[in-house]
Each structure stands twice: as structure tokens, then as C-alpha cells.
Design a protein around this nucleic acid. Structure first.
Lengths: 204, 204
DNA sequence: TACCCGCCCATCCGATTGGATAGGTCTGGC
DNA sequence: GCCAGACCTATCCAATCGGATGGGCGGGTA
């Protein structure tokens, strides 16, 4: 069985390779960034499974995953990550990933997961997937409408109402309205607080 | 030689342990969070070296490091991290850490580093430590006077000039003055941008 | 001593903001 | 059809902000 592992942390990669190969029947190729992985997949022999680190050079979030899955003879691809959210995992599985492997997984479980995924199954650790919907996704955020979010994004850039209006091709009074209603929803009194709350919530 | 490894990523920990132990003369104990590590150090046999993941439960940044170094028979302690900044590494070494190991290090280099540190030397990868001063170390901040920093702190709380004035027991015009000069120094046009820059710089 | 700099206060002005109120369109659900 | 809600625009007003100018005080330095 042939496995391709792409992770930019040499230490993680090296030890992972050593561990996986020690199980006997798994051959591992390892590369340090997405471009190398992409090249190997296109030109090299077929892999039974590809493990991509979610955060590594050239990966661009889920874009790398999509690029591989769009190939003609796309191999089975799974993501591996130390800190990705459940949302990312879900999106990846949705997009057709063979699985999602958090780095908090026990090493032996990884071996099992690899075999499982190579057999054509989709894998994701149950406890990880059933985790709370992430910190209520920031209760504030999903209370805002599309427009209000766009306006809030402008605020987090320190833009004036006028600038935001230009950017969204709207009249300034409209922006003022959105700004005001937005303040009420997230319970702040001025744009600076709004911007900070948005940043705090990890938005933008 | 005895090594204690603390990392909350099971996968990383397991494979690391397997790799290090495969070198023959290093015994590795592994735990998943700071508290367990602390306990082992206090009660168990002496370790030649302790490797702490910078980001793991109960670690609290460098606080965990300090707590161990403050012990009576403190062992040699090194940090290991996937994404810590050079500043953190410097602070750790300054505080008396035996070394700093980025996870981008090659596995064999880690073995060498471990032996090196266990021998009493301080280790840090040169390329990592000579990396660009991070975003210019925040050139802005130390250009500001004491007062301006206090005012900036008010801005990061979304306070109005009047509120800041009350807080510092000054007249409002004075605050406006500080605000204005502060804008020039950090090159922004309004309070929201100033607050965001300050947050970005890790202030307050 | 003269000078710079941090620090404080004041006044004046135009622009922006925060807030209220009022009106309009359009879409989707009851 | 009716209603609610998202969305757009407008006008009016008080408060705040951003900026400029001018003046004063004390400490450190040339």
C-alpha cells in the first residue's frame, strides 16, 4: 500500500513516516508542501491515499484539496490538521475528502484510519465531529444579515461610512442605517467597539 | 538518558516517542498536558531533559515554563512548538529554557538537539532565531510616549475622548491632542484603525 | 541661557458619527 | 392578499471626532 504524506513540519513528517512504515506493509512518500504533493500525484505512481496537512505552504485552505480532487485520476485524499475546526472537517468531507485526521489522534488509530480510508471508506473521529458547534459560532454573528456583515467588515478595516458606501456601491445613509442596527445587535455604542468585537469573534 | 515529552497532540507525541526511542539510549516518558508534566517532574525520577509543547492545555504560554524552572531541583526544560514566534523563543531562552525546538526541525536534528541540550548547552536553530524581526517588532509602539500609550489603551477599549479624559483625570482637549499625535506616529486616520493596529501589535 | 520635548489646556472649524423618523421595493411565508 | 423582514434612501439634529493654532509649564541638554 502506498501513502503520500504532505506536511511542512519536518519533525512531524519524519516521525510520522517512521512510525507508519514500521507497521510493515505501508510505503510512505513524504513531501513538505502542497506543490510537491501535487506534482507527485500527477506524475508519480498511484497512491492508495494522500494525507495533506491543512496548514502548509501553497495549500490555501481547502483549495489544495479541491485541486487534487479535480484531477482525472484523483487519488483518495484526507486532511490532517492540528487545529482545524469541525467546520473545516465537514467542508472537506463534503467536498469529497476521504477523511479528516486531527493530530490529537493516537498513532495506532491513525494506522487504522489510513487502512480504513484506503479501503474506500470515509473517516472522521466521532468525538471530533460531534464536538459543540464550535463556541456558539459567536452568537452575534449569525444574527447579522448579509449586508450588515459586509458593513461590519468595513468597520474592521477602519473605514468611514462614506468609504464603505463606495465599496458596496450604496448611498451613505444606507450604511449609517446598517451600522446603527448592527450596533444594537452586537450591543456596542461605536464603530471601534464593533470592530474589536468582530475581530475578537475571529471574523474577517 | 531520560526525556519527558509533553504534547497534547497524541499523534505527534506517539510518533515522536517512537522515533526518539528508536535511537537506542534515550528513554522517553510522554504526557498530554502541562499538569501531568509538572506532576511527573515533582514526584518522579530526574529527567535529563523536558520538552514542553508551547501550546497545550494548562501551559499558559510561558507560565508553565517558569513554574518548572522555579522548582527546587528544576530539570533542563526546552520548548517545542509548531508556530511560536521568535519573540517567544527568545523570551523562553532568556527565562532559562534549555532550548527551543520548532516542529519544522528535521527529526534527526531533534535527536542531536536533545543530546546537546541534555549536556547542558542551550539550543535554538540559527535560521529560526535570525528570522526577520517579525513584523518589525512593532516599530510603532516604542515610538509612543507614556501618555500616548495610555490614550491608545483607551482607544482599544472603544472609549470616547471624554471617557479617556475621565479615566486619566485630564481635560478632553488634551486627550484629543494625544490622539492626534498618536495617529501620526502609527500612521492611521481614525480611532478604529488605531485600536486595530494596537491589537494587532499585541498591546493591551 | 536657549532650545527641545513631553505634557497640559483652550478655542475654532469642518467632517463624521450616532440616533431618530419616515418612506420605499422586494421576497417569502401564512 | 397580508405581513414580516431584508434592503435601500432620505432628512434632521446633537454629539463626537479629526485637525489646526496658540499658549504654558517643567526637565533635560547643548
Amino acid at each position: 500500500m502506498r501513502l503520500l504524506l504532505a506536511d511542512d513540519h519536518d519533525l512531524v513528517r519524519d516521525t510520522l513516516v517512521a512510525y507508519v512504515e514500521s507497521t510493515g506493509d505501508i510505503d510512505v512518500d513524504a513531501v513538505a508542501d502542497f506543490d510537491q504533493a501535487f506534482e507527485r500525484i500527477k506524475t508519480g505512481d498511484a497512491y492508495d491515499l494522500v494525507l495533506l496537512d491543512y496548514k502548509m505552504p501553497k495549500m490555501n485552505g481547502l483549495e489544495g484539496l479541491h485541486r487534487i480532487l479535480d484531477l482525472e485520476n484523483a487519488p483518495r485524499v484526507a486532511l490532517i490538521s492540528g487545529d482545524a475546526t469541525r467546520e473545516v472537517a465537514e467542508a472537506a468531507l463534503e467536498a469529497g475528502a476521504a477523511g479528516f485526521v486531527p493530530k490529537t489522534l493516537a498513532a495506532q488509530s491513525l494506522i487504522n484510519a489510513i487502512r480504513f480510508m484506503a479501503m474506500g471508506e470515509q473517516y472522521a473521529p466521532i468525538d471530533f465531529m460531534t464536538a459543540p458547534d464550535t463556541p456558539p459560532a459567536h452568537p452575534l454573528v449569525d444574527k447579522l444579515t448579509q449586508r450588515e456583515l459586509q458593513v461590519l467588515e468595513g468597520l474592521t478595516k477602519g473605514q468611514s461610512n462614506k468609504e464603505i458606501a463606495r465599496g458596496l456601491d450604496l448611498a451613505e445613509p444606507t450604511i449609517k442605517l446598517h451600522v446603527k442596527t448592527l450596533y444594537r445587535k452586537i450591543d456596542v455604542n461605536n464603530r471601534t467597539q464593533a470592530a474589536l468585537v468582530a475581530r475578537e469573534a475571529g471574523l474577517f
